[in-house]
């Protein structure tokens, strides 16, 4: 008799278990109609502004329709001057919004999860990062660029999401995933 009773209670417990799980599992589903999303996270523009007094050089990449569609355009306003120290500032914009969305601010807010890397093929140029994230590691929105002798080559700007920080200063050592990678042709004279 006792056996039968306990068996029944086990079955009852099993039933309770199943039904409680079933209730927990149900969740409401929201829904919408005919609303078309478009790319809001887009970065259309990378602008690197280098300033030394009245000598201002901008390096700009712009791809207004994002991935696919028309190709992006590169615009370098002029040559850099040899043996000069420039204050550099990077700006990321989404110009499909009006007014343009300043993505740099988002990067700044999440400075510990991001880092800009600057690589140039002209060995006389040195670029140092002047800003720090909450952990005291460089972010690279503000930079100092010092030119040496005249020459031509390229300058690559990368923004890495979730890099290893601190790292040895190269993007290869930082891992992470690449959010921005643009390469400009530059000249020092």
């Amino acid at each position: 008799m006792k056996n039968i009773k306990s068996k029944h209670s086990i079955k009852l417990l099993a039933l309770l278990f199943v039904s409680s799980l079933a209730f927990v599992g149900c969740s409401s589903d929201d829904d919408d109609h005919d609303d078309h999303d478009h790319e809001e996270e887009l970065i259309t523009t990378v602008r690197y502004t280098l300033t030394n007094g009245t000598d201002v050089v901008t390096l700009e990449f712009q791809d207004l329709d994002g991935e696919g569609g028309a190709d992006g355009t590169y615009d370098v306003s002029g040559p850099l001057t040899a043996n000069t120290t420039y204050v550099g500032e990077i700006q990321l914009l989404n110009e499909t919004e009006n007014p343009a969305d300043n993505i740099t601010l988002e990067v700044e807010d999440e400075g510990d999860e991001h880092e800009f890397f600057y690589t140039t093929s002209i060995s006389d140029i040195t670029i140092s990062k002047d800003d720090l994230d909450v952990d005291g590691n460089p972010v690279g929105i503000e930079t100092t660029l010092v030119t040496g002798d005249a020459g031509t080559g390229s300058l690559t700007v990368e923004l890495i999401h979730e890099p290893t920080k601190p790292n040895d200063g190269t993007s290869a050592s930082a891992g992470g995933s690449t959010d921005v990678e643009v390469t400009f042709s530059i000249e020092v004279q």
């Binding site: 829904d31 919408d32 609303d35 078309h36 999303d37 478009h38 790319e39 809001e40 996270e41």
Partner: peptide, 15 residues
């Protein structure tokens, strides 16, 4: 098929 809005990204496949 409803490509639910609010993703801030182009839908992978459309409505």
């Amino acid at each position: 098929n409803d490509a639910v809005s609010g993703t801030g990204a182009n839908p992978l496949i459309p409505d």
